[in-house]
Design a protein around this nucleic acid. Sequence first.
DNA 1: AAGGGTTTTCGACCGGCGGTCGAAAACTAC
DNA 2: GTAGTTTTCGACCGCCGGTCGAAAACCCTT
Lengths: 235, 235
Amino acid sequence: MAMATSTPVEVLSAVFQVREPVDGRATLHVLLQRSGAAEPWALPGGDIGDRETLAAAARRHLGTQCGLTRVAHLEQLSVFSAPERIPGTRTIASTYLGLVPRDVPAEPETMDIDSPAAASWFDVDGLPPLAYDHAEVIELARGRLAAKLSYTNLAFALAPSRFAMSELSEIYGAALGHHVDATNLLRVLSRRGVVVATGTLGRTGRTGGRPPALYTFADDELVVTDEFATLRPPP
Amino acid sequence: MAMATSTPVEVLSAVFQVREPVDGRATLHVLLQRSGAAEPWALPGGDIGDRETLAAAARRHLGTQCGLTRVAHLEQLSVFSAPERIPGTRTIASTYLGLVPRDVPAEPETMDIDSPAAASWFDVDGLPPLAYDHAEVIELARGRLAAKLSYTNLAFALAPSRFAMSELSEIYGAALGHHVDATNLLRVLSRRGVVVATGTLGRTGRTGGRPPALYTFADDELVVTDEFATLRPPP
DNA sequence: AAGGGTTTTCGACCGGCGGTCGAAAACTAC
DNA sequence: GTAGTTTTCGACCGCCGGTCGAAAACCCTT
């Protein structure tokens, strides 16, 4: 075993949440932070403690820099190791994808955007200029999210604990960037056992319309079934 | 941006090749190395140079430790960051999956297995005791390989440049661990445009049987099509 | 050269999955 | 009660992949 050198490592998190801007249509948002008004917006992250896992470090920085604690899912993305990705000091970045459910209060929004250190959610379409290669990280995270939504139960980390199918279809639509039919979504997800009906009905005090059945995700962590692989083994 | 500390980083590569043991049946093999006869077998890898990418470092160690240069595909796996994964010195491992085509001569096999520093291929079923968490890395790599074989053209990195469908079916079978029907494989892969016929015929000098048509992979690098995602966008 | 053995190739069948649409159900507002 | 809105259910349909049997093409033996 060769001896490993001491290369500086940082962790960066691209955390997504489905939120609705003033006009009403829900879109995918990403959490950004900056240490001063003159600095560019950047992904939250930083150094790794001596006795700390990378995931633990990511969670710690989300808490201290953005006041965000309720991350429902956090998974590794790629490592960025281009020698000059940060001019001057060589730094390797281990990146993470984080997801926050829709019913989590918008914690970072309460922080003052004009204070020296601030954090805020941004619509992924229409981001401000970002530090270093952080835009690339966000693009990678979007792609990973879209891919995994279609063949895993990953949406559990974006949806509220109980939801109507129309609401879930909205969330999928925001994350995937195109319309998702609620009828088909229900059939597909319940056939796979990903969502289950709770038996209760939702908001009967609206402007009209049949009250929707409320559903929940069967699991509250990522479940990967190999049933979607083609070239399956014989039964 | 918080300052990143200097955490030791190493790179580890799980490199696979489909090879046939003496008895004939082709199986998946992984490349291992050890620095002395008293040391346990371990994945090739080591430190990262100051002006070097992680992937470049992985390739460099494969060359110096195993004499292996013809790696057709190399992609990132997960980062292992448990504080005590190597007792004593804290080391973070960035792991890679590598693939070597079947027609590449068995370079490391020529090295003397009993010399102080040696490298050799091992059948993935029936591995010797491994250093640290390296068995975990290999398991992760196997899973990733199996998953990607079914929905990408990743097999281009395991197959020879030209091959018969029965040979490709053998390769898939070895990597997936179960029988893969050659008829179905041809239909699926050619419908996706992954493999194309070369027009030439293969080995007409055997013990009998119809001479097979020879095929090639359309691309010699990984191509990811989003056509296999369910919940597609409308046309 | 005729026939048996072997391997590849082609076509047919079939169940399941997912995309789509229209009609029925259930509720609110007027 | 009627109109409007939203959800739900069922039906249709094309495509994909797993399977099987028959035909094609070749070698070897007799």
